[in-house]
Design a protein around this nucleic acid. Structure first.
Lengths: 112, 112
DNA sequence: TAGCGATATATACGTTTATACATAACGCTT
DNA sequence: AAGCGTTATGTATAAACGTATATATCGCTA
């Protein structure tokens, strides 16, 4: 069974910085309120998740995620309104691309 | 400067087998008539190119590339009509996706 | 002020992936 | 029969990447 797959992401000055991985991480952070829990839930190492957040925040004027250390619960992670908006727009784009691809049957027909 | 990028490919039983890399390789083979020259022109090792051709031909009923060894010019490589058709359809798909993505400005607007 | 849970950071390790290199096999040409 | 250029194939090396592990830091709580 052959299937067309598509992946989209955003690059800044040639460096990729927002794609499916970061998008899932933001969603998990929103659910968990913690970067370490978000990372382990999606089977990503904490280090990679942390570096990812750094890169995300470097490439935007307003941070997408705010990390806090110490305090009542030892710290935590939070997705900013800007982060939520980007998640929304990115998922919209993905849906539109998926819809287009679902209509494209010619390539699959050729591949017997 | 932020930019949306898209990559599409075809999977067969979960294994990816046709994408931008194979597509370029087929184009080069068509131009060069030789797998080794095609590979070096696109800075791919011969071994990887050869393995790629094996995988391509394994996943289709009719081969996409025919390799010949020995003979007048030592051998050669040729893209079959099926291969040409797949190249055509794949590039059509890429163009449609690119057109759709060019229209999607919302995500880029959010990313300041 | 000791403890807790989370972020912050470096180092070492293992896995995957691609390349470089060497060599064999093939079949036409001369 | 020797030579040529290409495909065919294995081995060793290197580069990239992700993970595991360990330790430090922070700030509220009790």
């Amino acid at each position: 069974m052959k299937k067309i797959k598509v992946k989209c992401w955003v690059e800044d000055e040639g460096e990729k910085f927002y794609g499916p991985g970061p998008n899932e991480l933001l969603k998990r952070i929103q659910e968990e309120g913690s970067l370490s829990r978000a990372a382990s839930k999606m089977e990503m190492s904490y280090k990679k998740a942390w570096e990812l957040v750094q890169r995300l925040n470097q490439h935007t004027e307003e941070p997408l995620v705010i990390l806090k250390k110490g305090g009542q619960h030892g710290g935590g992670a939070e997705v900013t309104p800007q982060g939520l908006e980007i998640m929304r727009e990115f998922e919209n784009l993905q849906i539109k691309i998926d819809e287009l691809v679902d209509q494209q049957t010619d390539l699959i027909k050729v591949l017997k």
